[in-house]
């Protein structure tokens, strides 16, 4: 069983969380070449070891989180609120 320490709710069972995906992906600008978008949407480093990924605390505070986790041992190194870039993009769109 994995425990994820949500920065808003404290330590919770991982069954409360849904998995997003690779948290290291930087989406390109909207007018970037198609190849850049292809790479961001379809290609993954698929790291065996420590990687940054996104989770959502769906059965808790519903916040998106950035989790640094080992994909082989499942050890969690850090949990922080999701990428500030996301907030910046949303703000820019608003």
């Amino acid at each position: 069983m994995i425990w994820i320490t949500c920065p808003f709710c404290g330590p919770r069972d991982h069954a409360e969380f849904s998995y997003g995906g690779d948290g290291s992906i930087q989406y390109p600008a909207l007018d970037a070449p198609v190849q850049d978008w292809h790479d961001a949407v379809f290609l993954r480093a698929n790291i065996c070891g420590v990687q940054t990924e996104t989770w959502q605390h769906v059965h808790g505070c519903r916040m998106w989180l950035k989790v640094v986790r080992d994909t082989m041992t499942h050890e969690i190194h850090s949990v922080t609120p999701a990428h500030p870039g996301l907030a910046a993009v949303l703000e820019a769109e608003a």
Binding site: R44, A45, N46, C48, T71
Partner: peptide, 19 residues
């Protein structure tokens, strides 16, 4: 299951695959 690990050894970058 381990395709990306070998792909990485071959120095080929990303794949449309997650394990």
């Amino acid at each position: 299951g381990n395709t990306s690990r070998l792909w990485n050894m071959a120095g080929l970058g990303g794949l449309p695959i997650e394990s």
